[in-house]
Each structure stands twice: as C-alpha cells, then as structure tokens.
Write a protein that binds this DNA or RNA. Structure first.
Lengths: 227, 227
DNA sequence: ACCATGATGACAAATCTTGTCACCGTCCGT
DNA sequence: ACGGACGGTGACAAGATTTGTCATCATGGT
C-alpha cells in the first residue's frame, strides 16, 4: 500500500519507515506540515499517517487543510500521549483514527489495514455492511436485513460512526466530537436521546437489539446474523 | 445460492469452498481463466467470485470477456493487496465489488449477499433506470451517472412519475393529479416551481438537460446516455 | 435499598420543505 | 419585429421535520 508519512522527528520517521517497509508498504516521507500538503498532491495514497505535533503547525490543522482540498484518503493521527481528550479532538478535524505514540507494531499495522479496508469499501460499491446492517454510503441510506431504515442526517452520522468502529465500545465523548463537533460536555443528554431514536428505528426493521449499552462507559454496535 | 468461483490457488479455493459451503452456497470451481469462461455457460449463477491474478490471464480480462458474452451476473473480485489503483481498475473492468484478500469470513458472506440482493432487486424492479438516471425505489433515492442526487419527498414523487412514464410527454394536469392529488387547477404555478427545483438538482449531478419543456403542453424526461 | 446512570415522553428551537406570488425572459403567431 | 401568452426564477411565508432540552421514570450495581 502507498502511505504518506508526515512526521518531523527523524528517529520516529526512521522506525516507521522500517516497520512499514517490512510489511510491504511503500512510504513517501514529508518532514513538515508544508511538505506534507505539497506531497499529498503526488498521490494516490491508500492512507496518510500524520503526527499531531509538527514544527510548522498542528496535525489537526493539516488534516483540515487536506480535507478542504478535497483529499479523502483516510488519516491516522499519531500523538505523543494517549490522552483521551486528544483522541477525541482528533476525531473531528477529519482524522479517521488515532494512535497513542508508544504504540506496538502489530497494532499499528492492524489499524492501517483496518482503515484502508474501510475506505476501499466505501469507494467501491459504496456499500458497507456490519452484521445485518447495510449502509449505502453515497446515498446515505441504511437497510437492516434488506428492510430500508429511514434515518435523519444526525441518526445516519451516528450509525455510521458505530459502523466505522464496528464492534468497538464507543464513548459519549467520542460521539460528541465526531458527530456533534463538540469538545466539551454540553451538560445535556443529547447523545442518549439520539441513541434512543436510532434504536427505535433500527428495531422497527427487525426487533433484535443492535445497540448495546455498556454501563458507565458508552455504547457498542452488535453484529447480528444477517439471516 | 449458486456461486462460480474462479481461483487458481488450490489452498484459497479450498478455504472458500469450505466457508461458502457452510453458509449453504453451492460452488462450481474453475481453476483458470479459460475454465472459468467455459463453466460460466453452465449457469445460471447468482454471483461470480473472481481472483484478480490467474495463470492464463488477469481477472480483469475475464470480467470483460464475461460481460461481452452478455453475462450479467454480479462479479466480486478478489485481490492480494487492497491497493487503491487496483481497486479503481477492477471496477472499470466490470466488477461490481472488490475485496482485498486478507478478508474475514463475515465480511465475505455479507458482501456476497449484498451483491446478490442488489442484482435480485434490479431484476424484480426495486431499482428502476431511465437514461442515466437510477432510481432505488425502496430507499427512495436517486442517482444520475452514479452520483447521488438528494431529493425532497415531492421532488422524488415528481421524478418517479416521469420515470414511470419514461419518455412520454406529461401534462401539468397529470402531475397535479398523481403527485399532488389535486383534480382541479390550483391557479398557481406549483408544478413549474417544483420542476425548476428538480431540474437544478439533477443538473448539479450532471450538466446535461434532462427535463425538456414541451411548449404549451407540459414536460418530458429525456434518456441521456449513461456513459 | 440506594444511588448513579441510562431511557423516554413532551415540549421548544432550529432547520428544511413546500406553496405562493411578483417579476423577468422566451417563444410563437402575426 | 412586436405583443401577448406561457414558462422560469428569486424571495418570502406557512408548514413539516428534525434536533436539542428538560423533567421524570426505569434499571443496574453495590
């Protein structure tokens, strides 16, 4: 796979280049934000790996600039610390996933292929499936067991986030950042209410529960049998 | 479902045969491009699974040959790596979906049923096409040249009526009766305004005019070339 | 049983859709 | 080329939907 790596620290860059190279990926390296934006034009890439801290601007800023230039390749953001605020912050600037820096090789490779697979699916048939749910990305429509589920824009965004993090537990903070673009707690239960509305619609199509509540933590999308 | 599997690697073929068999599908296996083309005649199949790399020709070539023989079964292409160039190439060649090879069982099965469902829908009229316009009846969504056209409910009803009367001249009275359920003249230009809004959206997807005005009579939907 | 946490119904605010109208441009017969 | 009829379009207002808030109820875990 073709990877654009935007990372200023030479040591980190060296290690990444080595690890990714071994796994059979081709790396294009940019050492600054400006360089990264320029080299993005050299594409196509399958994925962009972006350091959160760069000498001439933050990764967040670069992500936003890339998106506004119409670049839709998936972005994996790296940060020195795995603070959950940062993770949450990264999700709205256009980053698709977030990895804390003392990362392990396996996890890095796994995340890369997960992201690449996800975006490949979307470009393709534009149909992403999870369990018995089928999401037509371009039309922004959803089917459960072949039954159409009419969703409002918010509900769609919400469900899409769950599908993109298929099977993972998702916190309210993550949802607020990714769907509502809020980095602070609005002190209301918007998320809960929206989850409720989404649940009702999904269960109107098929009564089996799909959105599990993880008590004290968040929610998780369950993969129901399509049969 | 009946599946034609065209795959030269015996190990991959064995695993697929096993997984698909468990899921209740009937497999016909071909180990080369030539064999695949021959066995396609043994059909009917619900879906064709095709490896991108074969000893006697690429999957791309096979897909093209199958299509030119008039075979319209959906094709799922498999490839070793999920590289973006290959993906694009594959879809051009007539494949309907594309799956990178370290795939998981659930995903494979989900894609197969999605593809099969889609082609079934096309046959039973759940997807209606006219010229370069594609109308997904159950989801009430519309595409022009593959680009999604977001329509409001009224606009959708309006367009649907034109598609159902494909190519015919349609009068304002017909539209008022069918879309607005009015059997008298409301003495306003609702129809004209709605046509205008529909036109703008359809032409945002592709600039070629599709809704022709028949002066003194009504309107007509034109069949534009899908290319 | 108690407290913290999540679910839900009802209302309000914001957004999007639809219909109306006034005005402008275009077509066609003369 | 002119005039009148017909169609197109922008702006506004009424109506419908979506979204957010809050109060209240239900449920899980200790």
């Amino acid at each position: 796979m073709d990877i654009l790596l935007i990372e200023d620290d030479p040591e980190t860059a060296r290690i990444l280049r080595e690890q990714l190279g071994e796994a059979g990926h081709a790396i294009v390296h940019a050492a600054s934000a400006a360089d990264g934006l320029a080299r993005a034009g050299e594409g196509p890439f399958d994925i962009i790996i972006l350091d959160r801290m760069l000498p001439d601007g933050t990764g967040l800023e670069v992500a936003r600039r890339l998106r506004s230039k119409g670049c839709s390749w998936p972005i994996l953001m790296l940060s020195a610390l795995g603070r959950s605020e940062e993770r949450v912050e990264g999700l709205d600037g256009g980053a698709d996933d977030y990895l804390a820096k003392p990362y392990d090789r396996q996890e890095l490779l796994a995340r890369i292929s997960a992201l690449a697979r996800r975006s490949a699916q979307q470009e393709n048939g534009a149909i992403v499936t999870f369990g018995d749910i089928e999401c037509h990305v371009r039309a922004r429509t959803v089917f459960r067991r072949g039954v159409h589920v009419p969703l409002s824009p918010r509900e769609y965004e919400l469900l899409k986030f769950f599908i993109d993090h298929g099977g993972d537990v998702v916190t309210r903070e993550m949802l607020l950042a990714a769907v509502w673009k809020l980095h602070f707690d609005p002190q209301t239960n918007v998320v809960d209410v929206s989850i409720g509305r989404l649940r009702r619609k999904l269960e109107a199509a098929h009564p089996e529960p799909v959105l599990e509540t993880i008590w004290g933590t968040g929610y998780r999308l369950l993969a129901c049998q399509p049969g």
